[in-house]
Nucleic acid binder design. Structure first.
Length: 404
RNA sequence: GCAGGGGUGCCCGAGUCUGGCCAAAGGGGCGAGACUGUAAAUCUCGUGGGCGCCGCCCUUCGGAGGUUCAAAUCCUCCCCCCUGCACCA
């Protein structure tokens, strides 16, 4: 094991806050002295089936803990997900059924294993202990927390002040999470800075129950591709860990320039001084490098190269992508006269447009090309044959397979 | 239970008092085009459906009826949501 100070230095990098810092160092020292690893906890919410690179920020930090010899425990919040989580958004998250939760939780393993060391990762479900608590025990647990403590949480106080909805079970959620820490005897709880309240409540609850309090370890939140909100699936501004390489690369290329620095720091292994030099160059080249680095982590170097090639081919040079989806069209079904058919109907049949009106719009806007020839007459009739390439907009390509 | 505020197009949100000019402002998102450094940034246009379509028609504003030549807008009943008060072993 590395000396505590060295570990501390490595781990601290990239974090926003460690509460309290000196206690964390003490724990590390003790761990080194006794040879006992720290128990580092992370709660994951199974209400979303996919992990995205926002989650990876925290997972990557956990990997560092693992590599330093500590024990990482992932808690799938299956029980809390069935209660529904106050997400900090205006609305509360839906309460999931047991089946949904289980389905989602199962897909997690393969995803976080791209980052964590599987053999060193312990996974538990918090329903294991939370579902066994009696109501009496719950009330006793709740007695350890005051209402004003809970109302300190900004999200709660704001909603209360503005007179919007706040339900009792939402207040219980942080208590569940806190109790997880008690059960696990967690030394450290990892989380995004938005988890501050919940994690510190865990610390508080441990103390009240006579256990050694955990340290809160906070990572910054990754801003999503929209450049405004934190990355989340529901906002659609995310890049999923399990997404195919080309898609991943493309999505990353669509982020605002200003985000690049954060992404380099939080999502890649590129050393800081190198990041600076990359960012001082051409923004597009920098972004390509960033996208490449991230794709490489999840899919390997070869796939990353391929994704980059594809991107340059399609968007920079505006050439055909390597694999163009094929669509079978039936002339008789669409309705043709002497082999010619209405372009607008064709677009609908392919599924590119959901209505005739939309098809007309696309055509008139100049979005439709067949074999490189733009067609702008919405009443145009075209003659198509198998192998014809249709392009709709900048990045939709279709190879036609014609049947009579 | 009582009082008040709401339910509008993918989302948010005007419009309701003073019926028609409302397929319904504005913003977001999304789509397209131009430009370019990319699915960055910026600018422009579009964003219910049907019709060979610069006009006409159809279906939309929680639900069901009604008044009217005409209703998102007025009336009746119903459903749902939120807030406050009351109740509170």
């Amino acid at each position: 094991m590395l000396p505590a100070e060295v570990q501390f230095h490595i781990l601290k990098r990239g974090s926003v806050e460690i509460v309290p810092e000196d206690e964390f160092l003490e724990k590390l020292k003790r761990s080194v002295a006794t040879g006992k690893p720290l128990i580092v906890k992370l709660g994951l919410d199974p209400s979303v089936p996919d992990l995205h690179i926002g989650h990876s920020v925290v997972l990557r930090k956990l990997r560092q803990f693992q590599d330093l010899g500590h024990e990482v425990v992932i808690i799938i919040g299956d029980f809390t997900a069935m209660i529904g989580d106050p997400s900090g958004q205006v609305k509360t998250r839906p309460q999931l059924s047991r089946e949904e939760v289980e389905r989602n939780a199962r897909t997690y393993a393969e995803q976080y294993c791209k980052i964590l060391d599987r053999s060193k990762t312990k996974v538990t479900f918090n329903s294991e202990w939370l579902s066994k608590l009696s109501f009496e025990e719950v009330i006793k647990l709740a007695s350890n927390v005051t209402v004003s403590q809970v109302l300190e949480r900004e999200d709660f106080s704001r909603r209360l002040r503005s007179g919007s909805e706040l339900r009792l079970h939402e207040i219980l959620y942080p208590l569940c999470q806190a109790y997880d820490s008690v059960v696990l005897n967690a030394d450290v709880e990892m989380g995004g800075i938005d988890q501050k309240f919940n994690i510190l409540l865990g610390r508080e609850l441990q103390r009240r129950l006579g256990k050694e309090p955990q340290v809160g370890f906070f990572m910054p939140l990754l801003i999503g591709l929209d450049g405004k909100e934190k990355m989340s699936k529901s906002l659609g501004n995310y890049v999923g860990i399990a997404e195919p390489p080309k898609e991943m690369f493309g999505k990353l290329m669509s982020m605002p320039d200003e985000l690049m620095h954060d992404y380099f720091i939080l999502c890649t292994d590129v050393p800081e001084d190198e990041i600076e030099s990359i960012l001082s160059g051409h923004p597009m080249e920098a972004k390509k490098r960033l996208a490449w680095e991230i794709v490489r982590i999840y899919h390997g170097e070869e796939e990353a190269n391929e994704a980059k090639d594809e991107f340059e081919r399609v968007f920079s040079r505006r050439e055909l992508p390597t694999d163009v989806p094929e669509v079978v069209i039936s002339l008789s079904k669409i309705g043709s006269e002497d082999g010619k058919l209405q372009l607008a109907r064709l677009l609908c049949a392919i599924g590119v447009a959901s209505s005739g009106r939309e098809a007309h719009r696309l055509i008139e806007q100049g979005a439709v090309e067949i074999n490189g020839e733009r067609i702008t007459d919405r009443f145009a009739k075209v003659e198509v044959k198998t192998g014809d390439i249709m392009r709709v907009g900048k990045h939709r390509w279709i190879k036609l397979i014609v049947e009579s």
